[in-house]
Simulated scan of single mutants.
Amino acid sequence: MNLDTYFSTPVWWDKLNIDVDAMVAFCHRLRQSDPQGNQLSNAGGWQSREFYYGDHPETLPLLNEILRRSRQCLKDFGYDGTKFETYFDNIWVNINQMSHYNRIHIHCASFLSGAYYLTDSDAQIEFYRNFQEQYTIESLAPVLELNAINAPKISYPAQKNHLVMFPSWVPHSVEPNPEDRERISISFNIRIRKKGTPL
């Protein structure tokens, strides 16, 4: 019997060529300047207050690489890249110590969200299927083997100098950090606008 699959959830990833040590130093300086930080999805750990493209010139090499790749995401979704473009909304830093994690959440009003990892970590980012759909799948009968059609979640590793991007409406979380070392990432949201639209 033939099988077609539709309504897929894209996750893009790539290894970058960024000066990681410089970015780690930037993240530590940001934390020193505001030890309290922000409290949103993080359970423990430190999250910076949001900042924007151009606020910290030392981040521009990284942000420009992300922005360049986001144009491919725009194309993959079938949007007209001659009329529309991607641009950064907010950006923030996450530093998780041992046992810290991020609760399940989504990012509202954006096209793409993502994370750039400055450290290797066994604490993975996890993406979840729509909860109502998953409840229905599991309530009908026991699932013998997980696959792309029935899996409730999928995980991606946190690898140093790697970028992961995904649609902002996909529920996601970060596993508890099992190691006695920092898990550092820079997260962001990206939106779409018509070219020529002023900010």
Rank of each mutant, 00 (worst) to 15 (best):
N2V: 13
N2T: 10
L3R: 09
T5R: 11
Y6G: 04
W12K: 02
L16I: 12
Q36P: 01
Q36K: 14
G37V: 05
N38E: 15
N38R: 08
S41H: 09
N42H: 14
N42A: 12
G44Y: 06
G44D: 11
S48L: 04
R49G: 15
E50Q: 11
T59V: 06
P61K: 10
L67Q: 08
R71Q: 14
L74H: 12
D76S: 06
G78Q: 14
D80R: 05
T82K: 12
I91V: 10
N94W: 03
N94E: 03
I95Q: 01
Q97E: 13
M98K: 15
M98S: 08
Y101Q: 06
H107I: 07
L118N: 00
L118V: 03
S121W: 04
Q124T: 13
E126M: 12
F127N: 03
Q134N: 13
V143L: 11
N147T: 02
A148K: 04
I154Q: 02
K160G: 02
K160N: 14
V170L: 11
H172D: 07
E175K: 10
E175S: 13
P176F: 08
N177R: 13
N177G: 08
I184S: 05
I184Y: 05
F188H: 03
N189E: 06
I190V: 15
R193N: 00
K194Y: 11
K195M: 07
T197K: 07
P198D: 09
